[in-house]
Amino acid sequence: MAKGKVLLEVKGLRAAVAGNEILKGVDLTIRDGEVHAIMGPNGSGKSTLAQVLAGHPAYEVRGGSVQYAGKDLFELDPEERARDGVFLAFQYPVEIRGITNSYFLRSALNAIRKSKGEAELDPLDFLQVLESKLKAIGWDDAMMNRPVNEGFSGGEKKRNEILQLAVLEPRFAILDETDSGLDIDALKTVAQAVNQLRAPERAFLIVTHYQRLLNYITPDVVHVLADGRIVKSGGPELAHELEAKGYDWLRDAAMVS
């Protein structure tokens, strides 16, 4: 298969939160259409990488660069990144009181459409866009009339993230531990929905602690992040190796290098 164009190029990325440097020089190249998985032990910096790429203001970029679709990613506000096709499925989706799921998602879609010079969708048009996407995650309208994530179960919150992904159709989707807290049925539904969204013009970065999600979503490349650096990259088989051997041997390898 012909390789796609480079979409994301991370070079020597260093980032800190609350004064602690978590990322200590991350290098990563993702091309259009590729699915990359980042695995690693707790505290290795996986979620930090996801948050930094999405532009969370609490994280301080201390060095390195990220080029995204030919732009300097750090020149863009979080909303500008989103409008340019960056999407983060949150590990802990946020509850928003008083705003229905439907209103929230339509506001997001319209903000993105507006930035592209496209017409905003009224509630009826939006309902049509929504219909097929809801079906893919096994939901009906009732979930859309509830306040965003309020009173949702862990699994419902994660499905909601995938629904947003399906509606907003990003070019680069980051899934931050989307598998955590899911039972096996929910995991399968989420994986299936992601697989349906795989496309030559859409890349994925899947952050996960466990290999089990990768039983259902086969990545093109697997990276291991340990102590703020990518210490090993390989094919899908690397995930299985990690599942069998754990992370300790890699942490030692990181110390040596």
């Binding site: 979080p78 509850e95 009181r97 008083g98 705003i99």
Partner: peptide
């Protein structure tokens, strides 16, 4: 966190503030 959540979905900061404030009343 809610502010960042909205911004990460493409909603501008001012609009995100307005939306969250409105949500407080809309609830």
């Amino acid at each position: 966190r809610a502010l960042f959540y909205l911004r990460s979905r493409g909603v501008g900061e001012d609009d995100a503030r307005r939306l969250l404030t409105y949500g407080f009343a809309a609830e």
